[in-house]
Simulated assay, not measured.
Amino acid sequence: MPPRSVVTGRSTDPRRRFAEELRLLRTQRGESLRQLGKALGWDASLFGKMERGQTIGSPEVAEALDQHYGTPGLLLALWELAAADPTQFKERYRRYMSLESEAVSLWHYAVALLPGLLQTEGYARALLSAGGLTGDALTRQVDARIARCEVLHADNAPQFRTILSEGVLRTPLADTSEWRKQLEHLVAMGERTNVAVQVVRHDAGLHALTNTHTMFLRLPGGSTVAWVETGYSGELVQESASVERLQHAYDAVRDLALSPADSRKFIIQTLEEVPCEPST
């Protein structure tokens, strides 16, 4: 069993530090990437990318590596530091945005918030304000988000499917008039031929994506990547086996969702429950 390394002492960059530890533990064990992949059941290319700092993988992978190397909690702690690093998050998100602009189709699951591609200006402003943005910075971010929505209206618009947790529709804006506009916009977008909106009711129970926002991007060459986001980090998933596992989870959630037609009725019912503004 290799000795447990001290978390501090080499690179201070969280992502690089994680990659260094992975390489060290494997070389101390005398394993090849192929042997490691066979032992843990993941594609060897994933571990190669993790050791090169191209991806940090998932917490499940970090936990499996901790068990394999006999370093309980060490790699998971380093993974959490790497995932929380804001510099790396921005880098990964820029890469995701670039791929989103190229995608020929997109599949999305929402835990608590509407996807940016379906947000109205009022919804985007309220959401970004809640995140702490103000003034010119807020205006720039709102404008950028609304500009992204135009991709669904282009002549060669990609196919877009979103599956919304019922919680998304049960979290209204404080401004009821803006909330009505958002729900009306959601209904209208669901009528477009390139957009499908589905809802997963609360009574569908727990499922594999209960706490994970997920977006799949099918790229022009036929490959698919995924963006997975929780409350504290986001990760671009490109390794094929990992993407496939996420797709199986997504398909299972889709089986639980209302049909697009029934989802439209549910959204309209939610809209009818929004209080009308008092007349003046």
Rank of each mutant, 00 (worst) to 15 (best):
D155T: 13
S32T: 15
R17M: 04
G73Q: 07
Q141E: 15
G30H: 10
T176L: 11
Y69S: 12
A84C: 02
S242Q: 14
R218F: 01
H202Y: 14
E235P: 01
T162N: 03
T71Y: 00
L246P: 00
D251P: 00
I163G: 13
V243Q: 09
E239G: 02
N211M: 13
R125M: 08
S101R: 09
F47A: 06
Y232E: 09
S263C: 11
G190F: 09
E20S: 14
E235D: 12
E277D: 08
E191W: 03
S58P: 01
W107D: 15
M189Q: 15
E121Y: 06
L75S: 10
D251Y: 00
F160R: 08
A39C: 06
R26W: 03
I56M: 01
K90T: 14
T270I: 10
L117S: 07
T134F: 02
L256H: 05
L36E: 13
A124Q: 05
V151Q: 12
A103Y: 01
D13W: 01
Q159V: 08
P275G: 04
E31P: 08
T87F: 05
D136W: 09
A82N: 05
G9I: 02
D251W: 01
Y123M: 09
R145Y: 08
R264N: 09
P2Q: 04
Y250P: 00
T210F: 14
T230F: 05
R17Y: 00
G135N: 03
L106A: 04
T134E: 07
T193H: 15
A62I: 07
V237C: 02
S223H: 12
T212Q: 11
K181V: 06
S5W: 05
C149I: 04
Q182C: 10
W42G: 03
E239S: 03
S129L: 05
S165K: 12
R201L: 15
E191Y: 02
P14T: 04
I163Y: 13
I163V: 15
F18T: 01
Q159M: 12
L152P: 08
I146P: 08
M189N: 12
S279G: 04
R16I: 04
V195S: 12
L152M: 03
R15Q: 12
Y69V: 13
E21I: 06
